[in-house]
Every structure is written in structure tokens, then in C-alpha cells.
Write a protein that binds this DNA or RNA. Structure first.
Lengths: 350, 350
DNA sequence: TATTAGCACTCCCACTCAAAGAGTGCTAAG
DNA sequence: CTTAGCACTCTTTGAGTGGGAGTGCTAATA
């Protein structure tokens, strides 16, 4: 579809426009990028590229600005290449690595770090335990029919909830319940054992059948139905960017970021698979954010799905942003332990 | 210090400037507020008020703008009056009331609500339990020397922590420990019993003395050294305000709000006592925020110190903001149960 | 046929200048 | 002490202007 030279021109225009923020003229391209050709030649190519909607001219006698289509070509070219983490940010990554014992804290830190390094907005999301494995179960009787359910998961995470059961159970019965649950479930994936558990429990605690069922359901809730948690950071960085001098649009974005619902949508729509994904402009029609691009990358950290991302202007420094994001993702995923960083997150999806 | 008429002029200028955002001229004052007098008379008063730094003139032949000193006079006048909650926001308050069972959630909601109603930035902070009262204590042995400490507090709050003790304790010993702690501490303020507990515990568990001491210290940590939690909400509202068209200052504020440290300082400096407090412009020199005002109000909710506040431009609608904040504060504190709202939070400090 | 030099043309931007408008300070009279 | 009147100051707005950047087209060239 695009000739070799047209591709060169597109990439050059995007590169230059990202750097300067000004419409790019034919002379600039001829001088800096396609040195063999004259400005007039480039002009002809540009006219064609405008025809096929890769470039756009704000007005006659102005240079060209890339369209989302051109950014897409540019980003795909970057993703095909090998990248390396910008060395000047090594210090931050080291700090991040030290916080890795607590995934939640690490992600919060990651958003700030991303915001700071790139001067865009850092995003993160933490999903529910994927395959929760119980290490310990306790039911503590708090009062008539009320029970404190305490679950200790492999990996150190603790869930608890005070819940009301349909009928009162003695502490002895509760102990029997936890003993039975432990026998079957400890050390195994909850999803696997959940089905077989009920019959086994009710077998011994027949007269409390109803309450046991309720208790197991509560456990389901604690283990599986944990909602996604969302974090943002470095929001203020974006205020200094010339691309966001339109306060109206900025306000829309900020408002969006304040409700978890929107970020949820963003996370869901952007990163179903593992790996890195770039959404340019209105490629995501659900989100009303033209002129913005979103990078999202997901991995597994501490047994939970972890997503980190960036949101910035369409005229974003993709090369750098992608590198940084990959570095952060790798660190959170636990790679880069022994000093190597560049090779993290090789899988790339679109 | 100020004559009766000078006071009138100051209040009128502040009032009008808050409403319009434009420098206020002598003619306007004469026509709208001091109807008996002519513009020339007002002009003379204004010249004097400029001398004594209540008003300020951006340039010759412009109207006057109030200085922080004038705002102070204006706010004090408002605080002396009785206020009533703006009725158009009743709906929000009802929503807030429904979330009151979980203080944390209520405060988060409150920040958004405040931001939305006033279109400034909502703040909130939640302090540690003031007088934590234990309802239940459990120590669960997780492995060699590691113990899960589980504390259920009166009011339903649960604290837990996995901690490593100096020497291993059997589950029996741990049970004895929890029995002893329960006997003394349950139902009483932790602060009161903490001192006497140690001897009593070690009396029975002499050979584990060291570990018991460590466990009690961990409990101290869980109960008393909980840090303040901070929330902000509705940040985006402020982007639409004409007063914040200076992106640089806006950025400073946003950056400030993203680090808990700064909000902590803000909370600490603004609201040592109960009641409502207004800080205008650079009255708070620690915070580098001229041209901004801060409202802070604190109360006790669910046994914990709760602070709600607002941060907005110095040219803020103080009357409305104060009313709204009082309404929110009252609701969080649990007042207004039976429908009356206007009389909440009468105590006013400066 | 593809490329290039040359040139007229378009459009934006920054600048100046003048007129309008708002509000003041001062003075003199009530 | 208050007020009317008036000259003065300063900002704001709009129109007009020149320079500059970049284009599109045409004709010449490899």
C-alpha cells in the first residue's frame, strides 16, 4: 500500500512532529531525512500521503501533521524493533524493585514513577487472585450467628470478613468446619476444590448445612470476586505539556481518571492478553479521548493480574514511553533480578 | 481600626469581586451597596483602604481587588453569622448519609461530593483509632516463629499482621497469651490497660517473655501507630475555574495533592482543634500556596479523628463553601439523623 | 518517466496604531 | 464632609500591515 519511500516520509514526519510539535515542511524532511531527494519530490509524496489520509495540513502553506493512521505505522515500526531501557532512569527502577514485596505498594509507586519519567499520566490496576491457594482457614464466632471468616493465602495475602450466617453455629462446629475445609483445600487451588468441598463439609455438619453453604459462598466472594483495584499517578505532570493547553479536554481526562469505572473500562478494553498494547487516538471508541494515546501492559505479579500503563497526548514520545513501560513491567513481574533489563516483555500484541 | 463605613466598603468589594472576578469600581459600590453615598465618596474611602492594605489596584484606572487582609475580615464576618445548608445539595447529603457505616468510604465519597458541589478540590483525612477497644484477640501460629496477630475492635474494624517473634511459641502458649490479653483488655481502652498487661502476661508465660513482649509491641503498632489516611477528590473541577488559568500554579497544587506528606502537613497545620478553620492565601507559610484558601473541619467519626476540607482559589465562594463543608462534616459525624441539618458544627475556631 | 529548480501564491503571525471604555484623582463648589 | 465635574491614565479591542514559511504548479532536466 505504501511505497518504500512513502513509508520513510511518514516515519520522518511523525518523528519530527513528535520532537518539535510544529507542522513539518517538505524542506525539513529533505534536509534531515531523505537527503538524496529535493524538497519538491517530498512535496509530491506528501500530497499523495495527504490524499490517502496519512498526513494532514492545518491550512494551505503550513507543513504536514501526522494523522492517527500515521502514528499507527510509526508505533508498529517501533514495536517491531528491539528497545533498551533508558539508562538515566535506572535509579527509579532500583527503587521500584525494593518495593516489590508488596504488589499494591509497588504499583502505586510505579504510577508515580511512570508519570515522573515520561511526564504523562501513570496508570495501574491490580486484579483478583488468579488461582488463590489457601494456607489457613479460621472461623471465629463473634456473636449470635455472626462469624469472622479469616483466610490466609499462599503468598501472605490475608482476607477477612465479618459475616452473618443463616443459623447460629457453636465454636466447636466452626472448628470442625475449618478443619474439614483445611483438609481438602489447603495447598490446592480454590477453583479446583470448591466444587467438591460442599458435600464433604455437609457430610459431617448436616444440621448446619445451610450455614456451611453460606460460609463457603462468603469464601468465594473473598477469594474470587475481589474487584480490580486502580491507581493513577503523576497526573500533574501532564499540566505542563503544550498539547494539553486546552483545559476543557484536560478536565475530561482528569474526571475520567477519578472514577474507577472508567479506568476499569480502559483496562478491560486495552489489555486482555499479556504483553504491551498501544491505543492511538480514537482507536478505542468507548473512551471519548481523541488526541490521546494509551499504553497498557499486563503481567502476573504475586499471583494476581497486574496492569501498568500510560496515558498521554497522541503526540507522545512512543519510543521512550514504551521502553520505560516495559522496564517497569519487567520489574514488577519480577524479572531483571540479576541486572539484565532490556529483554523484558517481549510478547507484543495489538 | 476600620470605621463602620470602611467595613461596609470592604465587605462589598469582597462580595462583588467574588461574584464577578473583575476589579470593583467605586460606581458599582455606590450604586449597589452604599446607596446613600456617591461614587466620589466611595473613592475617597477606597484610597484610604488601599493605604491600609485592605484593597489593591492592579493599575491606575482599574477598580479595586481585595487583599488577603480583606478576605479575612469578610470570612470572619461570615463565620459570626448563622448559616444554612444549601438546599439544592440535599440529595448528595442523603447519599453520603447512606455510606456512613464505613467511615473510609464515606470520606472518599465526601471528597468527591465536596469537589462537585463547590467545584473546588475536596480533601479528607482519617486518623488512627483514638481509644481503641479490643473485642477479640487471636494469635495463630503460621510457622516457625511466625504468628498471625488478629485484632477485632469494637465498632467492627479488624487489624491483622503476620509477624516474626524472637522465639517460637506453641499454639497452646499462644492461646494462653490471647486468653490472658483478653481477660484484661477486652472491653477496655487499650491505652489504659497496655501498661499493666505486660507483667500479667509474662507472669504465666515466663519462658516466652521475650516473644510476648514483642507481640504486645506489635499490637501497639497495629492499634496506635496507624498513620493518617488521606483522600482527595474532584480535582478536575478546579480546571474549569478562571482563577486557575495559570497552569504553573495549578501544577504545583496538583503535585502537592499527590503526596500524602503534604496533605499531612496541611491537615496538621490547619486543624488541631475540633471545628472549622479557614486559612486564606499565605496565612499558612509552610504551604507554598498563595492565591489559594483552605477550609478544614474536623470531628470524630467511628472513634477516629476525621477531617474534611476544601481547597480553592482565594477568590472562593466562602459563604457557600463553609455551609456545604459544615453540612458534610455534620453528616459524617452522625448528626442530622432526624432531618435537621442547619445547626451542625457550631464551634468555630481560628 | 521521475526529478528538480523556480516562482507566484496563500495563509498565519506578530506588530503597530488608534479609538473606545472604564475608572481614577483632583479640584472646587455646595 | 460630600459631591459634581473633568482631565488623565491605562487596558482592551480591532483593523491594518509586512515578513516568513511552505505550498502547488510549471517548465526544464537527467
Amino acid at each position: 500500500m505504501l511505497s518504500e519511500r512513502q513509508l520513510e516520509v511518514v516515519l520522518a514526519v511523525v518523528y519530527e512532529y513528535i520532537k518539535t510539535g510544529e507542522p513539518v515542511g517538505s524542506r525539513t524532511i529533505a534536509r534531515k531525512f531523505l537527503k538524496g531527494r529535493s524538497a519538491a519530490t517530498i512535496r509530491n509524496e506528501m500530497a499523495d500521503l495527504e490524499e490517502s489520509e496519512y498526513l494532514y495540513q492545518p491550512h494551505t502553506s503550513a507543513g504536514r501533521i501526522p494523522t492517527p493512521k500515521a502514528y499507527r505505522v510509526y508505533v508498529d515500526a517501533i514495536l517491531r524493533r528491539q528497545r533498551s531501557f533508558p539508562s538515566e532512569s535506572e535509579g527509579w527502577i532500583k527503587e521500584l524493585r525494593e518495593r516489590r514485596k508488596d504488589v499494591e505498594e509497588a504499583l502505586i509507586y510505579a504510577t508515580r514513577l511512570l508519570g515522573r519519567i515520561t511526564s504523562y499520566i501513570g496508570l495501574a490496576a491490580l486484579g483478583p487472585e488468579r488461582e488463590p491457594v489457601l494456607e489457613r482457614v479460621e472461623f471465629l464466632r463473634m456473636g449470635h450467628s455472626t462469624v469472622l471468616i479469616l483466610l490466609v493465602l499462599k503468598g501472605g495475602l490475608i482476607h477477612h470478613k465479618i459475616s452473618t450466617l443463616p443459623c447460629d453455629m457453636t465454636q466447636e462446629a466452626l472448628d470442625e468446619l475449618s478443619r474439614r475445609v483445611s483438609t481438602v483445600a489447603v495447598g490446592r487451588s480454590w477453583g479446583e476444590v470448591r466444587g467438591t468441598l460442599q458435600a464433604y463439609v455437609e457430610d459431617a455438619l448436616e444440621r448446619y448445612a445451610e450455614s456451611c453453604r453460606s460460609a463457603l459462598n462468603e469464601m468465594d466472594g473473598l477469594l474470587l470476586e475481589q474487584p480490580f483495584q486502580f491507581f493513577t499517578g503523576g497526573t500533574h505532570n501532564v499540566l505542563g505539556l503544550p498539547d494539553f493547553n486546552d483545559l476543557g479536554r484536560l478536565q475530561t481526562i482528569m474526571a475520567l481518571l477519578e472514577e474507577d469505572e472508567s479506568i476499569g473500562m480502559l483496562v478491560r478494553s486495552c489489555s486482555t492478553e499479556k504483553g504491551l498494547r498501544v491505543t492511538i487516538g480514537d482507536e478505542n471508541p468507548e473512551l471519548n479521548m481523541p488526541d490521546c494515546s494509551i499504553l497498557m501492559a499486563s503481567t502476573i505479579a504475586g499471583g494476581r493480574k497486574a496492569v501498568v500503563g500510560l496515558i498521554g497526548p497522541m503526540r507522545m514520545d512512543y519510543e521512550r514511553s514504551i521502553s520505560v513501560l516495559e522496564g517497569v513491567l519487567g520489574t514488577i513481574a519480577g524479572k531483571g533480578e540479576n541486572g539484565e533489563n532490556g529483554e523484558s516483555a517481549k510478547e507484543v500484541h495489538r
